[in-house]
Amino acid sequence: MWKTVVRRLIIMIPQIILLSMLVFTVAHFMPGDPFTGIIDPNVDAARLEELRRAAGYYDPLHVQYFRWVGNALQGDFGRSFAQKVPVTTLIGARAMNSIRLGIVSTVFTYAIALPFGMLSGRYNNSWFDRFVMIYNYVSYAIPTFVLALLFIYIFGYQLQWFPTRGSASPVIPKGTAPYYWDMFYRLLLPGFTAGILGTATTTQTLRNEVIDAKTQDYVRTARSKGVPENVIYNKHIFRNAFLPIASSIGFIFSGLLNGSVFIERIFAFNGMGDLFITSITSRDYSVVITLVLFYGVISIIGSLVSDIVLSLVDPRIRIE
């Protein structure tokens, strides 16, 4: 088991190096220089040229790359042009907000998709199965903003169950228990919305896997042992049908994190997605580049998590 994890961690190193090169190349083609937006435009051109040279703007590409990597490893991703603060300061707190939202969405996704998939697979062609099929089509096809606005209207405006905007209350004192409870409470509506949007693939995959698994010989063996039907489904069939789901668990999480760009915008949720859109519209390149790198790393970690989970549940792919 540990061999699998270590091996998988080692594979991550070249992946991240490649990603950083890609991001660096993209950054290189972006307009502007290190002084864009932070220096008085009336500065003499010769003086500006001198400053650029001193900052290493004309250094060979590989020198620039390694300097960037070196700084990044020390947590220095440059400064935001627009907000005049270090990028890390800007991202730090928002990253935590987004990760919290990602976790809540993932929990909602599985809380819906697992029972739906299991039951519609077990009772395929029943009315419940047909209901789940329609649910899948709708949740897959509906645009994020439509569902988000609908939920805001129903749960936030009409029923007034949830606050409709923000990730934290401006009035409750920070660091107190009610403050954290409020933070969690504010995650529910955006988390539920994003969670629903992510269910279709998992539900459909699980349903098909269950239908496939229930005709397998090992299920017949279990029956011939006198194992009750519920145990057959919850133990034998579920564990096998879950394998492809397990392999996508990390992707679901990173997907929800990336996809939360729109959710965060609509719920005015103070997360990375919201920052991403703001930075793009204000051409705040150093922030955009860092976020691209961050999302890339999240995706790589997502696939790492998937592989580890899969090797936990499927003994056949463990490296002994």
Binding site: Q216, D217, Y218, R220, T221, A222, R223, S224, K225, G226, V227, H236, R239, N240, L243, V313, D314, P315, R316
Partner: peptide, 21 residues
Amino acid sequence: LRGNDISMIFQDPLGSLNPVM
């Protein structure tokens, strides 16, 4: 009764065992 009074041995020993148990 199944497994206690009557039990069965199947043809394909790979398929008739659960791969993840």
